[in-house]
Design a binder for these strands. Structure first.
Length: 456
RNA sequence: GGAUAGGUGGCAGAGUGGUUAUGCGUGGGACUGCAGAUCCCAUCUAUUAGGGUUCGAAUCCCUACCUAUCCUCCA
């Protein structure tokens, strides 16, 4: 597959090895609060990437970190007067629940930073010994001058950062561009012991410690939101490569575009977030996924509820078709039946994970199947079902819940009763039954002599 | 100021030199006892502006304008 690599800044062949584990790391959230649709967009995309690679025979280990100690968590815990670890634990559970609702199921391990303190302090120690870091009164800092390539990923030259300075200079630092990797303990804050004093880790070194524990000094894919390129991913590169001496940290860097709302980036600090939990009260995980995957993963999405409504209608078209394929009577067969839909969708994903291209194909497929559906043979029907199954397995944008349960005999008899009424031209009673079924979430559709039904 | 992506119909969003994107919306039709679902036809006569290259430009080049993200909170 070809993928746009943020470091090389062009579309390159992603030559992964099917005989080895593909190591993929994606930056997870700081569990300070509930996640918003911007987070969801990123995690949905990487979920699809992992699912797709696995479907092509790659053994993907998908690792995601969880930042569960951080300034913002501490501040919030003081506001709410709950211990920071409780706040983090609560939000982590919320987060995992939200991901499940979004159908995100490809992550092998969620690594909480606080469980990797030994690895973190070990990395800090190694950086100190090798001269890539130094101690000050308030912590340990990474010495940016020791890593000349700093800024390459984000296209910032190390010198141009001077003019863009907007942080207040820290008296303790040798160079204002240096970033903290260990913060010494402050009163009332959580801390861990270390050879260089009690304290807690800086953000960037959490991720390098976690990835080094699982993957070693380099790995295959590093993903995250585009806003993390600078400084976070630059710092990760600087830390780990300074330690390892290797020429790279990750072989492929993939960044997802931002979700804006009213032409402005959605973020906590701007107070314009729409949380996923709120959205999920009105839209299913598949619908949210479809809305996000309809845009290229690198483009900015301008979020609106209209786009969700549109995705809902689109998703329903697909799931309704599945119900019909499952529940109606097959026909005699269509001549020159068109196949190759899955291959076309795979071709789209092979080309820089073009999910929108795959969805376009799926919509063309839907038009074709819907216009031939009454004539499809059993085999053709199964072929169509397999296409929808693929869309469900890889993209996660089709709800396939047409299988009827054992408690559905009541519905069957109501449908039968209604058809008896219809034969007697007692349409009033027939419509009443239809109305009652609808209230129970059951859709029915008269097709000639027979009637099919499905649950929402 | 620097870096990076863009500016396409009512909306979202493809197309990287020559044929309908696709979806949503809107109008009409078919089907139906009526619905619903679905299909068909149409509509929107789309390419930020101005130059240039070319037989031919949304696509290549130049100029201008505009937007978003990043430049030490961020997915």
């Amino acid at each position: 597959m070809r993928i746009t690599d943020s470091l090389q800044k062009e579309k390159i062949e992603m030559d992964l090895d099917r005989n080895r584990v593909v190591r993929m790391f994606v930056c997870g959230p700081t569990v300070q609060d509930r996640i918003h649709i911007g987070h969801a967009r990123t995690y949905i995309f990487f979920d699809v990437l992992a699912r797709y690679l696995r479907s092509r025979g790659y053994d993907v280990f998908y690792l995601q970190n969880i930042t569960d100690v951080d300034d913002r968590i501490i501040n919030k815990s003081m506001e709410e007067k709950v211990p920071p670890e409780d706040l983090a634990a609560r939000n982590l559970q919320e987060y995992l629940k939200t991901l499940r609702s979004l159908g995100i199921n490809s992550v092998n391990f969620y690594a909480r930073a606080t469980l990797f303190m030994d690895e973190i302090t070990d990395q800090v120690g190694r950086l100190l010994r090798s001269g890539h870091a130094y101690r000050t009164e308030d912590g340990v800092y990474f010495r940016i001058s020791s890593f000349p390539e700093f800024g390459r990923l984000s296209g910032q030259s190390i010198d141009s950062l001077i003019s863009g300075a907007r942080i207040s200079p820290n008296e303790n630092k040798e160079d204002y561009r240096d970033f903290v990797i260990w913060k010494l303990r402050k009163e009332g804050e959580p801390y861990w012991g270390s050879p260089f004093g009690d304290g807690r880790p800086g953000w960037h070194i959490e991720d390098t410690s976690i990835t080094e524990s699982f993957f070693g000094p380099s790995y295959d894919i590093h993903g995250g939101g585009a806003d993390l390129q600078f400084p976070h991913h630059e710092a990760e590169i600087a830390i780990e490569r300074s330690i390892s001496g290797r020429s790279y940290l990750a072989r492929f860097w993939i960044h997802t575009g931002m979700v804006n709302i009213k032409n402005e980036k959605m973020s906590k600090s701007l107070g314009n977030s729409v949380t996923v939990a709120d959205i999920l009260t009105s839209f299913s995980g598949s619908e949210v996924r479809l809305a996000m995957l309809k845009s290229g993963y690198r483009s900015t999405i301008d979020f609106s509820f209209e786009m969700l409504e549109e995705a809902k209608i689109n998703a329903r078209r697909l799931s309704t078709m599945y119900m019909k394929l499952k529940n109606s009577v097959p026909g005699k067969g269509v001549d020159n039946f068109r196949t190759g839909w899955i291959e076309r969708m795979q071709d789209s994903l092979e080309d820089d994970m073009d999910t929108r291209g795959a969805i376009t194909t799926l919509n063309e497929f839907a038009s074709y199947i819907n216009s031939t559906i009454d004539d499809l043979s059993i085999e053709q029907r199964n072929h169509a079902i397999a296409v929808l199954q693929w869309a469900s397995d890889i993209l996660g944008i089709v709800d396939l819940n047409a299988d009827k349960g054992s408690s559905d005999s009541l519905i069957e008899s109501m449908v039968d009763l209604r058809n008896q009424m219809r034969k007697k031209k007692d349409f009033h009673s027939a419509d009443l039954i239809r109305e009652k079924l609808r209230e129970g979430g059951v859709y029915i559709e008269d097709r000639g002599d027979s009637t099919i039904w499905w649950k929402e």
